[in-house]
Design a protein around this nucleic acid. Sequence first.
DNA 1: TTGAAAGCGGTACCAT
DNA 2: ATGGTACCGCTTTCAA
Lengths: 331, 331
Amino acid sequence: MNIYDIASKAGVSIATVSRVLNGKGNVSEKTKEHVLSIIEEMGYTPNIFARGLGLNSIKMVGILCSDVSDIYYATAVSTIEKELRQSGYDSLLCCTGDNIEDRKKSIDLLLSKRVDAILLVGSTFKEKSDNSHILDAAKNVPFVMINDFIDAPNIYGIVCDDFNAVRENTSIFLEQGLRRIAYLYDADTYSGALKLSGFRAAFTQLNTLSDPELIVRCAHSPEAAREQTLRLLQKQKRRLEAVVTSDDCLAVGALQAAVSAGLQIPHDIQIIGFNNSLLARCANPALTSIDNKVELLSVTAVRTLIDVFAHKNVSNKIVLSAELVKRSTTI
Amino acid sequence: MNIYDIASKAGVSIATVSRVLNGKGNVSEKTKEHVLSIIEEMGYTPNIFARGLGLNSIKMVGILCSDVSDIYYATAVSTIEKELRQSGYDSLLCCTGDNIEDRKKSIDLLLSKRVDAILLVGSTFKEKSDNSHILDAAKNVPFVMINDFIDAPNIYGIVCDDFNAVRENTSIFLEQGLRRIAYLYDADTYSGALKLSGFRAAFTQLNTLSDPELIVRCAHSPEAAREQTLRLLQKQKRRLEAVVTSDDCLAVGALQAAVSAGLQIPHDIQIIGFNNSLLARCANPALTSIDNKVELLSVTAVRTLIDVFAHKNVSNKIVLSAELVKRSTTI
DNA sequence: TTGAAAGCGGTACCAT
DNA sequence: ATGGTACCGCTTTCAA
């Protein structure tokens, strides 16, 4: 069934049916009603490909993320999808893993599907040296990056102020007189680098230096973090006083290590997570965590995109503030 | 740039270019090389809509789930997306929430985007009374349901044997002589009903009856489960001996309650989760959990779909077995 | 207000 | 092996 069938059933031309379908152009109320009733009766749905061929768009946005099974990205994707749908856009999901070549391929793939825009979730896309692939692609469609930013035409970044988030909360420990503070992180990304700088800056502010041995990179799993923390606890003569992490899942591992070492929390050691995810609420004792507002970032990203579509003036970088959610692993 | 441009640049007809692009029909090696080099040189990408118009497909599968921010669904969607991509299909994600009308709308929406199939993730789609919407839609495209099943043409179900999973593990508690066993669940779905029946069946097997007051429905959050468990712990004169749950997130709540009540785990009380998710590993003590093999279910679902596409003979219901992953909350 | 017809960019059948 | 062309189903311009 196509627009010709509807047109002949209704005794009008396909042009009129098209006008009715799209609600533009002048159609008499009477004709409109009539055509609509035929469409309803026949259960007709316009062919999206034919429409796309004419308009070169089927209102679809590509979402790129390294891994939706990660609880943080899952929340972002969930929020984005909902928000996009409300604006009449569908979500084409593309999980790339960590391989650079796969990512480039994914962007090509989305482009070949003629998506209207590409949303980059997570700060794992920017390369140190060469972002030409993204820059090239941005000539075709707008890009919105969540937790990352490239200063180039048609690219927008919505980021959380990770630097100050970590700096301020590390400072709180320092102000309590603590010095043996470990930093556990898992990724060397844009946002990862900001967090680490924030950690160091807190020490610099007080004209102190952080102990390089206490800054530890480990895999993205509670098990890895647990192991690293146990190592630090055993090795250090002077006991560890606090652990700052770049992700709740690492904080959970640190927490497990501290508990199994018989330490009282938060009395003997304080621990702070990042993302304020479900993991923080599930930890025992419940984890104090820095909320970097993933839902807000996601909503803002979509809103920004919609504004770009509408040719509104949009600032190309938006920075939001994180917020500490205090639970039971800090004083 | 379109196929005409390529054709004229290469000095051949569009038919030849099309043949080269699709790798079918006879094209001389020489011509093929030449056309390919022009395509490469110009950076040409075929228009997906034009192709879709002709073929009525752009190799895209719709994924419907109530909520990807849920860690379990996120894992499923992640696995599905990867597996689909390997087979050359893209994923159109559609999160419906719990509203029935929204779900129906979503199916219509996917259909209007001319997806090649629809994957239903989670057993939240089947209604008690009326599944006509799914049955109708299945006239157009194949459906694959994960953890759910409707016995109808063009609908395939990949399910975990939730009934026996819960029955067997509850039986283990009963065989240890425990009788004060609570069951915490959050959803009244197909799979939810099976789990609950499994719990009851374990008692029936021993000619006993489970205490109805110990079968408690609560919201899908650790906080809700914690509250309900605390209530049970306070109320019961004879102490609770074990808690079986339909989801790790509830088990975590139960665990928090038990710990805060000063109980020794697993000595005083045993707790068992479901899904074997990251939450089980993050809990303290680490949670024993029933692994219902979400990755395997997901992979099997996609493989099934690919077989359906290839018109292979496919059984319309596949049942997989769960497996207990023992950690520290059971003896 | 309505209709006729020209694209949009491919695929595939039928000739050659 | 290659080319010509009808066709897929819609949008939109131009004329009436």
